[in-house]
Design a protein around this nucleic acid. Sequence first.
DNA 1: TAAAACCTGTGACCAACTCACAGGTCAAAG
DNA 2: CTTTGACCTGTGAGTTGGTCACAGGTTTTA
Lengths: 145, 145
Amino acid sequence: MKVKEIATAAGVNPDTVRFYTREGLLRPVRNPDNNYQLYDAEDLRRLRFARKARQLGFSLPEIRQILEQADDHHSPCPMVRDVFTQRLAEVEREIAELQLLRKRMVSALSAWQEMPDGTPDGHTICRLIEHWDDPSAGSCCGSSE
Amino acid sequence: MKVKEIATAAGVNPDTVRFYTREGLLRPVRNPDNNYQLYDAEDLRRLRFARKARQLGFSLPEIRQILEQADDHHSPCPMVRDVFTQRLAEVEREIAELQLLRKRMVSALSAWQEMPDGTPDGHTICRLIEHWDDPSAGSCCGSSE
DNA sequence: TAAAACCTGTGACCAACTCACAGGTCAAAG
DNA sequence: CTTTGACCTGTGAGTTGGTCACAGGTTTTA
């Protein structure tokens, strides 16, 4: 298979195939006649695997590690379970962060409803933002020294 | 104020101050003697403003636009409300996406509990991932051509 | 045979910083 | 007066996972 063939077979951009190849996730051989990259069924399996793993939140270095373990006939599954559990915790942390941001935004928006639009006068830029207090920041202790 | 002074006054990394300066958010003057950047109270106000806006989800180009409007004595507030509303929708979309990912991860993890760790045999890499079906992807229609 | 579609490698771009580096400046201490 | 350490300067690279552009070579199709 050539680049575009494996790319469409896996439903990805050909540039992604080239990128994964550069990153060492795929191992095509060269056609000595024209220097083209030639991929086989194993590469397609690896590519589909990589895409699924990405959807599950694995990073490219992690995926490369998994593939290398498999190449060495070691079961990557324990590592997969391990990394995955950590990744889940991370995702949950990200969700919590975004929800906090959302909370800040919603409360700011509702506070803004009763605030007039001011014209900048050299002291303020936009009251909406300047007079907004981050509820998650300590507002009691000055941060200047 | 010199770089480090304004940085500590605003609670940010001096490199961030330099970066914002390069990006045109801050407008220090030069000390002709030593070529140092000199910031004034207005710059500190702009810097604090920018940080608050970042916490609220504004991008640097948006913040620059807001600051430019204020420089031109136009009230940036209507734009702020506008961008902010869009941004809130985006954040909510991101949250939904992450929650979907989390759901995928949790369901995969629970399915994995009853699956044995296999050793790669040339046909599979890691069953855990390969035999996982993305519930959000159409599994009925093959993607290969 | 000529055009269209594909291949190659290299390098830039996205966001918002952060860090490293090499060299210049300044304040206080010895 | 000199040294030391903290600070300043600009530039460039690294982060993440691709995507896009470009210039030139190859293959396929009409």
